[in-house]
Design a binder for these strands. Structure first.
Lengths: 148, 148
DNA sequence: CCCAAATAGTTGCACATACAACAATTAGCT
DNA sequence: AGCTAATTGTTGTATGTGCAACTATTTGGG
C-alpha cells in the first residue's frame, strides 16, 4: 500500500510551476488544433477576437489585454496586417507615435467562426470539467497571475 | 454597480486556456530568475534534478517524466552533455538503440543548490498561496492535464 | 520655451518547444 | 529464420515569446 503510494507520486507532482507548464502545453495543442481550421495560431486568433471586439485599440493596450510583450504584439500585428486581417490607422488625436489597430473586412468575416470555435472549445472544456470547477479554477489562476 | 461589474470583466477572464497561458508565462519568469543563479533554464534544471534523482534513465523515460517531446529531450540532454552536467552511457542490457543518462560530478555538485532553489521557490509560492489551495490547485491542474 | 525623462513601437537575437522525416535497431509474428 | 512493424533517438525546420537596444515622438518640469 505504502509502496504503491510512493510509486504513484512522481518527483514533480507537487510543483505548481511544473504542472502548470505541462498543462499549458497540453491545452495549447487543443487550441492549436481548433483554430487551425482558420489557419490561425491561438495567439493570433485571440488578437483578432480582441480587435474585433474593440476596434481601434492601440498596441500598448493590446499588450496589456493579452499580457504579452510589446515586441510580441508588434510581430503579431505585423503578421495579421500582412495576412490582411488588420490595418494600422493614424491616431485620431494626432499622436504620431501610436496607431490604432482595426480589423479589415477579411477579419470581420472571421468574427462568426472565431466565436463559434471559441464556444466549441468552451463546450469541450465543459465536457471535461464541471462548470463550477472551471469557474473557480480559472478565477484562481487569474488571481494567481496577478500576484506574480 | 452593474457598470463597474462589466468594466472589470475583461474579454478572456473566463477562458481556461488564456488564463493558464498568461499564468504559465508569468510563473516561468519567476522560475527563470531563480535558476539563473546556476546559469540554468528551468527546463534544464528540472532535467538535472530528475537525472540526479534517478541516474541512468533512458531518454524515452525522461520524455514521459517531463511530458516533453523526444526531440526536446534529445536537445536538452545534448546541451547538458556539452555543458558537462550529463553523460550518455551504453545500456547495460546491450541494447544499442538506447543510452542511459547519468549525471557527472559537476552535476552532483549542483544537487544541493538545485534543491535549495527548489525549496526557496516552494516557499515563495507558499508566501502567496495557502498550503491547502496550492495542493488542491496543483492536484486539479495535474488531473486536468491527464484529461487532455 | 527648452531639455531631460518617459513612452510607443521596432528590430536583432536567443531560447524552448513541437512536428515531420529519417536512420538504425529491436521486437513480434509467421 | 526471415520479414515487417515498432521503437529509440536524431535532425531539419518552424513558431511563439521575451530581453535588450534602439528610434522617434511625447510629456513633464523648471
Amino acid at each position: 500500500m505504502l509502496h504503491i503510494q510512493q510509486r504513484s507520486l512522481a518527483m514533480f507532482d507537487r510543483c505548481l510551476y511544473f504542472n502548470t507548464n505541462v498543462f499549458s502545453r497540453k491545452i495549447e495543442k487543443v487550441w492549436i488544433d481548433a483554430y487551425s481550421e482558420l489557419g490561425l495560431a491561438p495567439a493570433h486568433a485571440y488578437l483578432l477576437r480582441l480587435v474585433l471586439d474593440k476596434p481601434g485599440l492601440v498596441q500598448r493596450d493590446i499588450v496589456t489585454e493579452l499580457s504579452l510583450d510589446k515586441s510580441t504584439i508588434t510581430r503579431f500585428v505585423d503578421k495579421m496586417v500582412i495576412e490582411g486581417y488588420l490595418y494600422r490607422a493614424a491616431s485620431p488625436n494626432g499622436n504620431l507615435k501610436e496607431h490604432c489597430i482595426f480589423p479589415t473586412e477579411k477579419a470581420l468575416a472571421l468574427k462568426e467562426p472565431l466565436n463559434r470555435i471559441g464556444a466549441d472549445l468552451y463546450q469541450k472544456m465543459q465536457a471535461l470539467f464541471s462548470v463550477e470547477e472551471l469557474k473557480s479554477t480559472v478565477d484562481w489562476i487569474r488571481k494567481a497571475s496577478n500576484k506574480l
